[in-house]
Design a protein around this nucleic acid. Structure first.
Lengths: 120, 120
DNA sequence: TCAACTAGTTTACTTTTAGTAACCACCCTA
DNA sequence: TAGGGTGGTTACTAAAAGTAAACTAGTTGA
């Protein structure tokens, strides 16, 4: 049984990976949580304080209300943001970044810097 | 004309965003380059040295050859990896991370750490 | 000669995501 | 009462992403 860079060859000469990324490795999992279209931008827009639904949708420009709703629901589930009903009758809702959400801002910033530094 | 958090109200009472993310802001652009399924993992697997196509596909476990090919082509185009034909007759090809590709590893590592620290 | 390897490509789908546009129900103001 | 606002939902379509499995075309070792 010889090996090289994580690939083993068995006694019949068949090759196989020693440590295949069988299922989502950390990087894939992270991308699933933060990588969806608009998710990063939404989090980024919330960093300076709570924002109301329609304002958020307007600021995201290209995103439809449906997209914004969907992404916000997913982000609520993962605990990145919280939805708060500020008043009934005139209904008003704000979305706020959670402490957990804030822990992700650091590397969103790094991503942003990387993109800007390399003209991507 | 009153304003609040990037939203303006014009003289007829209509609201509009002042700085809508009209098109891909840095975070979206970065996600487009690094966020595709498997892209992060591919780059990560290449960080210790060149890897051959089939070995890479095996290590990625879940990914089909078609996906691996597609992602590698995209990553070649963005300059994250280079394809090198090591020999014809037995054909052998390796993929190697570029210097530019390496500049993205820092942020992938931060993503990985973030995921592991928060049990995502 | 057979089986397994190399690096892919091609086909034929299925699934997921993204997106539009219209609509609901209610509120407020001129 | 019309037109704007609030925060969504529904229905439907189009496009992208992903899959397995077969196939090309040649090489290598038993």
């Amino acid at each position: 049984m010889s090996t090289s860079v994580g690939i083993a060859t068995d006694d019949k000469g068949r090759k196989q990976a020693l440590e295949p990324c069988l299922e989502p490795c950390p990087i894939e999992r992270g991308m699933r949580v933060l990588g969806g279209k608009w998710k990063g931008s939404i989090l980024w827009h919330l960093k300076d304080g709570p924002v109301r639904f329609n304002d958020l949708a307007r600021q995201l420009g290209g995103a439809s209300k449906k997209m914004v709703t969907q992404r916000l629901r997913e982000m609520e589930e993962t605990g990145l943001v919280i939805r708060e009903v500020v008043s009934d009758r005139p209904i008003a809702v704000t979305y706020e970044i959670t402490d957990f959400g804030r822990t992700a801002l650091g590397f969103l910033e790094e991503l942003k810097d990387w993109v800007e530094q390399h003209q991507i």
